[in-house]
């Protein structure tokens, strides 16, 4: 027994060594980029630390910021729409049997499993077939489409934990359908709805492939801008942007986690 414990302490197992290497592998590229965002000169030759690229990012990149504004507009509008439609559908699918239920269930998972290129191309061809001009609206429609399955999935998962008797209890105690929805269902599933919404925001801010196909002139989002920077002349401003974006996502994620915890604790 004692010998066994000794053995365990004396060597790190193969699997945990792999795990630590993998974590290093995942972080090193980001770390390099962040490190060089504080480099004074261009390129990978370290000269000395400075905030030059951050100044450039904040004060001298108006088109980046307007792309970011587009990204935000798209993220919020599409996430709100997707959250609204997806939540209602999840409730309907979970609790009612009706014609078309199977169709909606199947179709709601597909956009999640098909490669992004397919979604992008099919929407591009669709929009040009029905002669809709590419622009903010088409991006909004595309983002709502790929966000919807995630809201639907997360709210459905939350509903699975939900005891349907509470809905019956509400009806039994005199609530009509809309009162039941407002006073019982929504308050109970709100954590699922919010995490779905947040997931939509992050995915929408991050999407490049689908947006690439359905964007038109003047409707470029931040990932599209980053793409053009990578493609046509890399500027270390990206390095600075990387760090800002990592910090941004971390802040959102942590505040949201805390928020979710308080919601969970209070219910």
């Amino acid at each position: 027994m004692i010998k066994h414990q000794y053995n365990k302490k004396s060597k790190i197992s193969f699997s945990s060594a792999m795990l630590y290497l993998t974590i290093i592998f995942l972080f090193v590229p980001l770390f390099v980029v962040v490190l060089f965002s504080f480099n004074d000169s261009k390129g990978m030759q370290w000269s000395h630390a400075s905030l030059f690229w951050y100044k450039k990012l904040i004060f001298e990149s108006p088109s980046l910021w307007s792309a970011f504004k587009n990204s935000l507009i798209i993220a919020f509008t599409s996430s709100i729409t997707a959250t609204f439609l997806g939540t209602l559908a999840a409730i309907g699918i979970k609790w009612y049997r009706f014609k078309g239920r199977n169709y909606i269930t199947t179709i709601s998972y597909l956009p999640m499993v098909l490669p992004e290129v397919i979604i992008g191309i099919s929407m591009l061809i669709f929009f040009s077939a029905v002669r809709v001009r590419l622009g903010m609206f088409t991006i909004f429609a595309a983002h709502t489409t790929f966000n919807l399955p995630f809201v639907f999935m997360m709210v459905s998962a939350r509903l699975d934990e939900f005891d349907y008797s509470t809905v019956e209890a509400a009806r039994d105690l005199g609530a009509n359908e809309s009162q039941t929805l407002r006073k019982v269902i929504i308050p109970t599933i709100i954590p699922g709805v919010l995490s779905g919404f947040l997931m939509c925001i992050t995915m929408s801010l991050e999407d490049f492939v689908i947006t690439f196909f359905v964007s038109g002139p003047g409707s470029g989002t931040l990932p599209l801008y980053v793409y053009s920077m990578i493609r046509y002349g890399v500027s270390p401003v990206i390095n600075a942007l990387t760090f800002v974006m990592i910090l941004g996502t971390m802040v959102i994620a942590f505040t949201f986690r805390r928020f979710l915890k308080t919601v969970a604790a209070s219910s």
Binding site: A89, I91, G92, I104, S108
Partner: peptide, 18 residues
């Protein structure tokens, strides 16, 4: 009726855009 009311907006959206 209820199932339809809840689920059809998403159904229509997916039909149209997917």
């Amino acid at each position: 009726l209820l199932g339809t009311t809840y689920a059809f907006p998403m159904g229509i959206w997916f039909t149209l855009f997917f």
